[in-house]
Simulated assay, not measured.
Amino acid sequence: MKRKKNKQEPTPDPEHLTEQEKVAGERARLLFKTLRNETFSPDEKDALWNQVGETISQRKQRSFNIFWIAAAASVTLLLLTGVGYLVFYKDTARTMQEFAARGANGPDETQLILGDKRVISLRNENSSVEYKDGGALIQVDSSSTIDQQVAGDQQFNTLVVPYGKRSVLTLADGTRIWLNSGSKLVYPSHFDKGLREVYLEGQAYFSVAHAEDAPFYVHTKDMEVKVLGTEFDVSAYDDDPYTATVLTKGSVELTTQRQTLFGSKKTQITPGTRAVFDQDQAVLQTQQVDVQQYISWKDGYLALNVAPLSEIIKKLSRYYRVDIELKQPKLAGVKFGGDLILQDDVRDVLKVLALTTGLNYKQQPNERRYVLEESTIKP
């Protein structure tokens, strides 16, 4: 009697069987040969044959599932490795960012916080810090010298410049950094051979000493600037929705979205270029600009090239650590040009600004609060 073929479960094709499946089939054939003289009903023989076929099919399906489980495990391992790098790997940039978060917020005086937790106050409005002897000596405001340990494990120093103050930092390699009001810079007590890295919050102008074998990196919360030796400005204030770099000379390489697993992007810019990274849109845009309007603050004046009044007020508020209110918001977008000298007294600057714009200014009972408003006197 011929066996009936099950239409739903086709007989396995011997050409596509694995070695284990061929062995199982051979054992089944021996079983039938041994039992050929035994008495089985046709239905029993069909059921037994179908059971053997199902066993072989299940083994093939199990092999198929094992393949995809292994593939999924590999992909998962890759993702976990990437996430582990982003979350758990402590590179220098992330370590310095953590030090910046620990630094003083809103101090009245500029502070130099050393790696051994000593805090040195700098009382001048325009202070200076210079590292000498490979970083072992620190000269503060040309009046005092502090020693620090540079051997052993790497330590990080933090220079905190509050609103209303400025500071110039000279590192042991000869790099000079002008820090604007409301800024923090974290940097190693000494640079290891072959690498120079700092972390910035706020605004700073960098004049980097050239070193072919030691690239210089400026890290911010969402941008990395890599140079060998050049001059540029970086602005990365927490209350601005962007991070910007303006290149004065040389060339720099920018990396944005560095902390994403696959989204890191690199861009090179040339002198006279301003690169702005929009934090909300995660987009980097570049344009040619008059760089002086972005770096003149370090020389004690604002070069205003059709700058909106709201931007001028924001810069003055930071520079002098005062509140300046624009009484008529409609004037925020009105643009002005010219050079605004940043004098010692903010009232002298506001007088010049009022005269230039045709506005009046008045000081509130709180001496650190000023109001700019339209003149009530009609021409």
Rank of each mutant, 00 (worst) to 15 (best):
G134D: 06
R59E: 14
Q281Y: 02
S189Y: 04
A72Q: 00
K117V: 08
Q293S: 12
D238T: 13
L78D: 07
T243S: 12
P12D: 11
L302N: 05
D239Q: 13
S41E: 07
T243H: 03
T260A: 13
S142V: 08
Q203I: 10
D108C: 02
L247M: 05
N124W: 00
T34R: 13
N65S: 12
E374C: 01
V225E: 02
T39G: 03
R166V: 08
R258M: 13
G358Y: 02
D233G: 06
I69D: 01
L17N: 10
E373I: 01
N180M: 09
L17Q: 07
K330P: 00
K265V: 08
N157S: 07
F336K: 00
L112P: 02
R166H: 06
Q363M: 05
D348L: 01
E15F: 13
Y237W: 01
A28Y: 11
Q155N: 06
M96Q: 06
W297F: 04
G333S: 12
V225I: 11
N157T: 09
T256N: 10
K298G: 04
T18M: 02
V168K: 11
E125W: 04
P14L: 12
S375A: 02
S57H: 14
W68S: 05
D153Q: 15
Q149D: 05
V23T: 14
G338F: 02
Q288A: 15
T260K: 14
L340N: 05
T145Y: 07
Q259T: 13
R102D: 10
E212N: 10
N305M: 04
E109F: 05
I313M: 02
V87I: 13
G164H: 04
P271A: 08
Q279H: 13
Q343I: 03
E19N: 13
Q139C: 06
V291A: 07
E98K: 15
A136P: 08
V186I: 07
T356V: 07
K330W: 01
V186P: 03
R123F: 09
R318Y: 09
S181A: 14
L79N: 09
Y370T: 02
T220N: 09
P42D: 05
L304M: 14
T110E: 02
K314G: 06
K60F: 04
S143K: 15
D233P: 05
Q61R: 14
K4R: 15
V225H: 04
Q203T: 09
P365I: 03
D46W: 10
A47F: 12
R258P: 08
L340V: 00
I138G: 03
Q293A: 11
E212G: 06
D233T: 07
Y294H: 11
R29P: 04
P329I: 03
S264C: 09
